[in-house]
Nucleic acid binder design. Sequence first.
DNA 1: ATCATTGCAAACTGTTTGCATCAAG
DNA 2: CTTGATGCAAACAGTTTGCAATGAT
Lengths: 147, 147
Amino acid sequence: MEDPSQIIQKLQTCGLRPSAPRKTLLAYLMGCDHHPTPYELLEGLKLSGHPISIATLYQNLQVLSEAGLIRKFVDADGTARYDANTSAHHHLHCTACGRILDLDLSDELASALVALGTTANWQVQKIQLDLEGLCERCQIRLSALQD
Amino acid sequence: MEDPSQIIQKLQTCGLRPSAPRKTLLAYLMGCDHHPTPYELLEGLKLSGHPISIATLYQNLQVLSEAGLIRKFVDADGTARYDANTSAHHHLHCTACGRILDLDLSDELASALVALGTTANWQVQKIQLDLEGLCERCQIRLSALQD
DNA sequence: ATCATTGCAAACTGTTTGCATCAAG
DNA sequence: CTTGATGCAAACAGTTTGCAATGAT
């Protein structure tokens, strides 16, 4: 969990009132190593002892996204997911356990991809990359099952 | 529009009855150069003079996807889209006009991306790449507006 | 004649909105 | 005290399902 005063400051810097639900939600997301769905957030916050209403949850996911404090993306199944890491834009997605890891792209690779668009006369502004497959754990787990 | 008898054959090869709605839907999708949403399909088929019910539409989008005759994907906004091109898996997405074009990836680039996962001990099965930006038309249109 | 497919209507999931209450500045 | 945020409940969009009627083999 993050330092409470830092959370408050982050919110105020963006011109947002540090209400209880907002602080809880932002702190929770910053302490997450995965990329929870709205439903997972609702349940997680409930379990953490700081439940918030579903309307407030959705309102704040939108507000915090617009403020740039969190990021929304849609996975290959069409499920909305959120994280507090606003830098990494790519993902490793395990098709077996559903885990989604952040992934960084080298500059060379990124420009090679941008070039793909340029040759089609497109001006590429954002690369969205999703590598789907099996994480280490699931590879081991599944190969063990085959024996 | 495709040859009607070819459409029928494609369906029968997959063990699907060539009912009127199925033939219309598959032919329509094969004649599409974009990637329509279910709603766009519903409207498009209505306009083409061969309306089908929404339940039948969704049922068949699923059946045809499972048969491998069409492909479903979810765009960055979370909207479901379908196309009859089952080979290309990558897209150029214009953020201004919403147009989505298919994109092919060179083998070198593809293996460079797979390697990214490998270094993280993942076994990559599918690369999903989405380049967002401005298409040629919209670049011209928008720069003209600025004058 | 049999069995898959259609299409209506109703159900369901995920998300948004109206609005009275409440809390932060 | 003023203004923005909460949270219930109701509305909404996209999708799925139950089921009687229909159409293909």
